[in-house]
Amino acid sequence: MNSLDDKKPSIFNFYFFVGLTLIIASMIEVILNDFLLSRLTLPLTLMTLIYWNVATPRNIGFFWTMLSGFILDIFLGYLLGIHVVIFLLTSYFSQRYFHRFRALFRLQQSLIVAIIVFIYQIYFILISNNFAISIIFELLILTIISSLFWPIIYGVLRYLRIKLTYGQ
């Protein structure tokens, strides 16, 4: 009767799994940044963070949010804390409105994520004082690509979460 409860992993396992996915996402983002000939990045870490905040708001802690932010700051050459601030804000608002977000269709979610990514990229354009016509093009392209990536990230992380939680 309690078979589902028995298969639940300990809170520490899940906590570390969330952290691991965030670190892997930030690593991929750093590697992609080297390959993409763009001044902006594909915000995989941000999207992973949104997913975990929406899916398991109680398990996503400050530590992993800040650590992944610091990793990006160090490897992408930003001032320490730039990514952390935006990640903390994203986490805060994602957790505040996760009920509404969960209720949306995947397409609507993609649109919301695209808006978040758009704001996120503008934040970096403002910080790096990188105003140019060409960057607007990059901004739009990366926002569209990010919204296309959202269902994939959502699907993969959901699959992994269910695997880890229920072993199915």
């Binding site: 802690g61 903390l88 996760f98």
Partner: peptide, 29 residues
């Protein structure tokens, strides 16, 4: 309410700004 309550969020933001200031002043990064 998730782990990101305002009582934790504000100190975390403050801490991030402190780190930013530290990096700006002492080139920690």
């Amino acid at each position: 309410t998730g782990s990101m309550r305002a009582s934790r969020f504000y100190p975390a933001i403050l801490f991030s700004f402190l780190i930013m200031y530290g990096d700006y002043s002492f080139d920690l990064s």
